Amino acid sequence: MKGYMYILLCSDGSYYTGSTNDLERRLAEHQNGEGANHTKKRLPVSLLYYEEYQRIDEAFYREKQVQGWSRKKKEALMEGNVDLLPELAKAYRDLPSSGLRQQ
């Protein structure tokens, strides 16, 4: 059974990342307030991006991966700027500190 990972834009400007085996049905559920709590409170929503997978478990895995990404990294994915993804994956703690002295 096919699966989809998708990103919605909510009315407050936030993103919602989900997965489903029926994208059209799931989008209708979100629009009708039958989706996740996050989207129920932020209607209407619009589909910005989706990826199709051969199996729903692959889509679910991808959903969990993308949910942990920063807004900028999600936007790079949606815009097709995959070359930016490794740079945007760096954690703040991994960046060189500026103005701090090492003792």
Rank of each mutant, 00 (worst) to 15 (best):
P96N: 15
Q102C: 01
G3F: 02
K40G: 00
S19V: 01
C10A: 14
R42I: 01
L27V: 04
L77D: 00
S19N: 06
L48N: 04
L85Q: 15
A89I: 04
L100Y: 10
V82K: 07
R42Q: 04
M1H: 10
E63M: 06
D57W: 11
Y6R: 00
L9A: 07
N21K: 07
Y15Q: 07
G33W: 08
K40S: 02
S98R: 09
E52F: 06
Q103W: 14
H38F: 12
G13Q: 06
A89V: 06
Y49D: 00
G68Q: 08
K64I: 07
G99V: 04
K90Q: 14
L84Y: 11
P86M: 05
E24N: 15
Y53Q: 06
E58V: 01
Y49G: 00
R62E: 14
K74P: 02
G35V: 01
P86Y: 13
M1S: 10
P96E: 13
A91H: 15
A36M: 05
K74M: 04
D57S: 11
Y92V: 12
Q67H: 03
L47T: 09
S97H: 15
R62G: 06
Y61T: 10
T17L: 02
H30K: 05
Y53C: 02
S70N: 11
D57E: 10
K40N: 02
Q54D: 13
P96I: 02
M5E: 06
N21H: 06
H30T: 04
I56F: 11
E24A: 15
N81G: 02
Q54R: 09
Y50Q: 12
D94T: 14
T17Y: 06
R25C: 10
G3Y: 03
K90L: 11
Q65C: 05
K72G: 09
N37G: 13
V45W: 01
F60G: 03
I7V: 15
E75P: 03
I7W: 00
E79I: 00
E58T: 08
L9D: 03
M1N: 06
Q102S: 08
L43V: 02
A36S: 15
K74F: 02
L77G: 01
Y50R: 10
G3V: 00
Q54S: 08
S97K: 14
A28T: 13
L47V: 09
T39I: 00
H38R: 13
S11T: 09
E87G: 06
A36W: 09
N81P: 03
Q65G: 03
V82I: 11
E79N: 13
V45R: 00
K41N: 10
H38E: 11
A59F: 09
G33C: 08
R71C: 02
L43C: 03
G99R: 10
E79R: 13
K90Y: 11
D57I: 11
V66E: 01
E51V: 12
R62L: 01
L27Q: 05
T17K: 01
M78A: 03
Q67W: 03
G99T: 07
Q54A: 07
N21W: 03
T20C: 12
E87T: 06
S19H: 09
N37H: 10
L48S: 03
A59G: 03
S11L: 11
N32E: 14
A59E: 00
Y92H: 15
Y49S: 02
G99Q: 04
L23H: 12
H30P: 08
L84G: 04
C10R: 12
I7G: 00
N21G: 05
I56E: 04
R93H: 08
K72E: 15
T39K: 01
Y15C: 02
E63R: 08
L47A: 09
